[in-house]
């Protein structure tokens, strides 16, 4: 089933001679269980695409559908609920709240959504345990390594009943081993049924995706074909 659909989405900032076309007629879909990478250089419109997909910004033209529902028809409250309940974000700089522990950071979106503290914290702890961070639950962000912080951010993005995971250069500040670990976790989340979009300029990061969409100057110019099985690269039988 399609979790995210963009229909001919355009975004224009400014007007007159200062007009900037950040996105032009972008159409794409993401199914549940699928990880899509949007790859392009800086200034290609990747981050704009992600904020529009995450309903944080409205397109100038075109439509965004999350779980089949058009975002433009929703009230402010409905849209906020959709963001809290269905969409998880992972940012390059983690965006954890410094005054909250790892477990509190993860359970925060559930509590904001009205879940009582106790079950919310239990769900947060479970999400941390699944990412191998159970014993760091009581640590504050500044007591965690970069890799651990990013795992907390992923736990926060997938906790609860999230259906769409959006990540902006999720391994940007990490070394390649930690970056790989982050992409494994995002893939694992997608295998459990979440639809994922990762925007990046990094081909190694993008290559973890099931499909890579290429963005240039605000337009989708190309995408990769479905991947053949892993055996295709192994040495042929002699």
């Amino acid at each position: 089933m399609t979790v995210l659909e963009l229909r001919e989405v355009s975004k224009v900032y400014g007007d007159g001679p200062a007009e900037v076309h950040a996105l032009a007629d972008v159409s794409m879909t993401v199914d549940d269980g699928e990880l899509v990478a949007v790859m392009g250089p800086s200034g290609s419109g990747k981050s704009t695409l992600l904020t529009i997909a995450g309903t944080l910004e409205e397109p100038t033209r075109g439509q965004v559908l999350v779980g089949g529902a058009a975002v433009s028809g929703m009230s402010r409250n409905d849209r906020a609920r959709l963001r809290r309940r269905s969409i998880g974000y992972v940012f390059q700089d983690f965006n954890l709240l410094a005054g909250l522990t790892a477990a509190e950071n993860v359970s925060l979106p559930l509590e904001l959504d009205g879940m009582p503290g106790k079950p919310a914290r239990a769900a947060g702890l479970r999400a941390l345990e699944e990412l191998g961070l159970g014993e760091r639950a009581a640590s504050f962000p500044d007591e965690l390594s970069g890799g651990e912080r990013q795992r907390v951010a992923i736990a926060r993005a997938v906790v609860g009943e999230r259906r769409l995971l959006l990540a902006d250069e999720p391994s940007g500040a990490l070394d390649s081993a930690n970056g790989e670990a982050v992409m494994r976790l995002i893939r694992a989340a997608c295998h459990s049924g979440v639809g994922g979009v990762v925007v990046t300029h990094d081909a190694q990061l993008a290559s973890w995706a099931d499909r890579v969409v290429f963005l240039r100057d605000g337009r989708v110019v190309d995408q990769t074909a479905p991947i053949p099985g892993p055996e295709s690269l192994l040495a042929p039988e002699r």
Partner: peptide
Amino acid sequence: RYLVQLMQEWT
């Protein structure tokens, strides 16, 4: 596109 597809297979 070709190179990224190859990279996806290796990954």
